[in-house]
């Protein structure tokens, strides 16, 4: 969603295009062509959407006003590969792109629309998940392709300062004190204020957790995850590092030949939403009461949800 809340940009992967939806009228106002196999999209500034084409390892920069492609930015070295974009106001006009085919974090000049450098992180594998701690100015890049570690880069010098023995998605808490890392059947919390990224603790979460959303209630920070291998969402007390609840959220589809599964989860205004593609529903959970409100029926194929506040 654009920062002003007026438009929703959605990647329609099968059509290699981005749909622009007017939030007020809820109508599609534009179809913007992009490269094939689009997955992730980012809104690094008020004027642009950066949509990544995995087939080309390229970001398509879309002007949010006239809905035209402003530029294409080839981020991956081999002009292909699944990738993400790490950006923060601390970076200015610089962004960092990951690519599962490249053992590097690519430095992107987002004003010049070009890759200006690549921070080498190893000899094999690639990069996938990313995270950033403003407290320490450290960026975290998961080393994918079987490497199983996470490289730590000082963004002020663009140099590798550490390598952590963990992998998976990274989610910064709202107070920027902890960095949650989703591993297999566990969530590890790191001290986001520590130059050494010290581990604070680990919570075992059964069911294949994916996507972590935080919610603070009564002075306690909770983490809500959607699980890929079980029909529930797990609630973790981040302070106590323990699972406090499991809430029915429905099942996702698990194709037999899938080598990895994902389940998205978003939150907003105290609600946690996660699609249950196998049931054809989206679970709506009250984060304060930690209870399911409803399984809302949706069309087949829904696997991503975006919260639009009123």
């Amino acid at each position: 969603m654009t920062n002003d809340g007026s438009q929703l940009f959605v990647i329609e992967t099968s059509a290699s295009q981005v749909l622009v939806i007017d939030i007020e009228t809820r109508e599609i106002t534009a179809e913007v062509p992009m490269g094939p196999a689009g997955t992730h999209m980012y809104h690094p500034n008020d004027e642009e959407m950066w949509a990544h084409s995995d087939a080309e390892g390229t970001f398509y920069v879309i002007d949010t006003t006239d809905h035209e492609i402003v530029e294409t930015v080839e981020a991956g070295l081999g002009a292909e590969g699944h990738g993400k974009l790490l950006y923060h106001e601390d970076f200015g006009s610089t962004g960092y792109a990951t690519n599962v085919n490249d053992p590097a974090a690519h430095v992107i000049d987002m004003d010049a629309y070009e890759r200006i450098d690549s921070i080498e992180l190893g000899d094999e594998g690639g990069t996938h998940y990313k995270g950033y701690s403003p407290q320490t100015s450290l960026a975290y890049f998961e080393r994918s392709g079987g490497v199983g570690t996470t490289a730590v880069v000082d963004i002020e010098s663009n140099e590798v300062v550490d390598e952590l023995d963990l992998a998976g998605g990274m989610y910064l808490t709202p107070d920027e004190q902890l960095l949650g890392n989703i591993g297999e059947e566990e969530i590890r919390f790191l001290d986001a204020t520590s130059e050494d990224s010290d581990e604070v603790g680990t919570v075992g979460v059964e069911g294949g957790p994916d996507a972590l959303e935080y919610y603070e209630a009564d002075g306690t920070l909770y983490g809500f995850t959607a699980n890929t291998m079980s029909p529930d969402a797990t609630v973790v007390d981040v302070d106590e590092l323990e699972v406090v609840d499991r809430i029915d959220a429905g099942e996702i589809e698990r194709p037999e030949d899938a080598h990895s599964l994902h389940r998205s989860g978003v939150s907003g205004d105290g609600y946690f939403f996660t699609p249950a593609s196998a049931d054809g529903t989206v679970a709506v959970i009250d984060m304060a009461d930690r209870e399911l409100i409803e399984h809302v029926p949706v069309e087949d194929g829904v696997d991503t949800v975006q919260y639009i506040p009123e």
């Binding site: 059509a15 295009q17 062509p33 490269g35 094939p36 294409t72």
Partner: peptide, 9 residues
Amino acid sequence: ERTVRLLAE
């Protein structure tokens, strides 16, 4: 400079 593609619908 980029692959030319055709999408037919």
